[in-house]
Design a binder for these strands. Structure first.
Length: 612
RNA sequence: GGCCCCGUAGUUCAACGGAUAGAAUAGCGGUUUCCUAAACCGUAGAUACAGGUUCGAUUCCUGUCGGGGCUACCA
């Protein structure tokens, strides 16, 4: 693909400035915008930044530059000046040529022989996926698609937190209170079943804690801490973890189970395997509904011992230090962080240790050039520390790690809190939007002549299109509010709006054959030039979005393109155009619009329906 | 306490330091003998506050106020 229009103009301005003023300019110094609709022209050069270098008034520069560009550039037809803004109009031939190149372009872009690994899911096996996971998954999936588009080899991965205290809690609760319940006996998805036992465990623990709080031991503890925690309730809230570790009978049982697991006790391992198997069945169903998959999965149960050798080596190299009790730490205070623990005094590893080991394992296995962790911004500090530690260990890939940190998803009522039961479950949410989509499809009645199977496929695409677009249109870095009702909207700035533009085009194209040639003597209108300019931006938009790990810009691009199309569609007739040439051109134009809309949505993980 | 992030129409989101801050939704008013009205057109409405840097600030800097996160021998 040759250079974009903006790049072309930038280079021409550089040339013109060199000839006019003998001044050297970098292409990046040339600001080129699309001309605002209030002004005449296609593109606008901002001349304020040039004023200092050239030592003339911006308006004068604009005037002289405009004249020069018309002279030296075959693509610039005319110009006008408004203050420091030079508005350029491009030759019609140039537009026609651009258009012809566009419709022949091929996507994805050629392979570049670079490898990127993207971790975009890291579920715990003690509860089902929720709305936060959905944002995580959609972001990561879209990044994978964007990088494939720009020619990378992409390895999609997840890390499953399948061991530890949390899963033992579910196991224990199931053992004690489950009566052998299974997904099939209860007709529950496995992840939901396990989630129920996790909740049940916490209920039982809370009851146990309540009773204990009335004992003499508890009251003594409270009294001796009364200065810091004057209120009894706040003291016991503060003390919950210590209670679990030091007094709770249930806590003791959980720890015993964990020890059995670590010893490899067969009965415990069997139970663990059985329950995790149920959870994976559940997760896989949810992943399937969301249309995502992984090339490789890592399991904490297999990686939790990794990383220890590195700690020992780092200790020898004085990257880390040992405290008198035998625990190993790294001091990151010179880069504005704290001391972080890497090995407990009993020699066992922590989360950070595993992450070090897992990074090494992945690099050995895949030799990636980039590794992206899609993880919520609550873990910013953890990843800063992890990357810094790997740098100090002189890992060759340390500089190629990136934490795609996304903002939490809030509800209109505030934060999602599992303790308060305000978490939006992924499966429930998908089910809800499917029923809304089904209902509105029935009301509209457009699909009645299709088989039920095809209807359901279309309904699914619309429903998931609405949900996914709603989430992915927001800049990943920003915290977002998820209003369940609005997310199911299908009008305005939504997935179905964009899908509708595609469907309208497909409907027209079904009625006729695509012409072979775009232009006879046809001359593009202003609106058609603007659509062409928008289409021309597609590749640059995707490239920028990929480099910035920001799918939301593609969502906004697709929406803008759809909006321009909808307006165009109302203004011109296509099948009954005023001339054969207009008809041919427009058919090819809208065909390309449909193609780009479809591509854009593919990059967002959203499928297009043929009808709706 | 320390460190980090965020404050844009009633609401949800946009805006490489560039022209009169864009959309959507909710409100009000229109458009269908015409290719899918999940559409289109019109109307009204916002940069938390105070300074600073700049030809130019929603964007960069400082302070104030407000919201959030992190700061475990948890993951």
């Amino acid at each position: 693909m040759c250079m974009s229009i903006i790049e072309l103009l930038q280079s021409q301005v550089v040339k013109a400035v060199a000839e006019l003023y003998q001044a050297n300019l970098d292409v990046d110094e040339v600001v080129v915008n699309h001309t605002k609709k209030e002004f005449e022209g296609d593109f606008t050069i901002v001349t304020f930044p040039l004023a200092k270098k050239i030592r003339k008034k911006p308006a004068t520069i604009a005037e002289e530059l405009g004249k020069k560009l018309v002279g030296i550039s075959a693509s610039v037809a005319g110009y006008n000046v408004s203050g420091g803004f030079l508005n350029l109009s491009l030759e019609l031939d140039f537009w026609h040529q651009t258009f012809n190149e566009l419709i022949e372009s091929e996507y994805p872009l050629p392979k570049v022989d670079r490898k990127i690994m993207i971790e975009y899911s890291s579920p715990n096996t003690n509860k089902p996926l929720h709305l936060g996971h959905i944002r995580n998954i959609l972001l990561g999936w879209s990044c994978a698609k964007m990088y494939e588009f720009i020619g990378y080899d992409v390895i999609k991965t997840q890390v499953v937190n399948d061991r530890g205290v949390a899963i033992c809690k579910s196991m224990l609760a199931w053992q004690k209170y489950g009566n052998g319940e299974t997904p099939s006996s209860s007709n529950l998805k496995g992840d939901h079943l396990i989630g129920n036992y996790y909740v049940l465990f916490n209920q039982k623990l809370a009851e146990e804690y309540q009773l204990w709080q009335r004992t003499d031991t508890a009251q003594r503890l409270y009294k001796s801490n009364q200065e810091e925690h004057p209120k009894e309730s706040s003291f016991f809230k503060f003390y919950a973890n210590q209670y679990f570790n030091n007094y709770s009978a249930l806590g003791q049982e959980v720890r015993n189970l964990l020890i059995q697991w670590e010893k490899g006790d067969q009965a415990t391992i069997d139970l663990w395997n059985k329950m995790n198997g149920w959870v994976y069945d559940g997760f896989n169903q949810t992943y399937l509904k969301l249309g995502v998959e992984f090339d490789v999965s890592y399991y904490e149960s297999k990686t939790y011992l990794l990383g220890k050798e590195s700690i020992v080596m780092g200790l020898a190299d004085k990257v880390f230090f040992e405290k008198p009790d035998g625990s190993v730490w790294v001091d990151l205070s010179d880069v504005g962080m704290d001391e972080k623990i890497l090995l407990r005094s009993d020699g066992t590893s922590v989360y950070m240790t595993q992450d070090i080991g897992t990074a090494q394992k992945r690099y050995q296995e895949f030799r990636f050039e980039k590794m992206v962790y899609v993880v919520g911004d609550e873990q910013n500090y953890h990843f800063s520390a992890l990357f810094e530690i790997l740098k100090r260990l002189k890992e060759p890939y340390a500089k190629d790690l990136f934490h795609l940190s996304y903002g939490m998803v809030d509800l209109p009522t505030g934060k999602m809190k599992s303790r308060e039961g305000t978490v939006v479950d992924a499966d429930v949410l998908i089910q809800e939007i499917l029923s809304i989509s089904t209902r509105s499809a029935a009301e509209r009645g457009e699909l009645e002549d299709l088989t039920e199977e095809r209807q359901n496929e279309i309904i699914k695409r619309i429903a998931l299109g609405a949900l996914k677009f709603f989430i992915i249109k927001v800049n990943p870095k920003k915290r977002m509010v998820f209003n369940p009702e609005e997310s199911l909207d299908m009008q305005g700035q939504t997935g179905p709006y964009v899908q509708n533009a595609y469907v309208r085009i497909r409907s027209i194209l079904r009625k006729t054959d695509l012409p072979k040639v775009a232009f006879g003597n046809y001359q593009m209108s202003l609106e058609e030039r603007q659509l062409t300019a928008l289409l021309e931006q597609f590749v640059a938009t995707v490239e920028q979005a990929a480099l910035a790990y920001d799918p939301s810009s593609i969502a906004n691009y697709a929406y803008n393109l759809a909006r321009s199309f909808h307006r165009y569609y109302h203004e011109v007739r296509i099948l009954n155009a005023e001339s054969e040439e207009a008809r041919d051109f427009r058919l090819i134009l809208i065909n390309h619009i449909a193609r780009i809309l479809e591509k854009s949505f593919y990059l967002l993980g959203i499928e297009m329906p043929e009808r709706m």
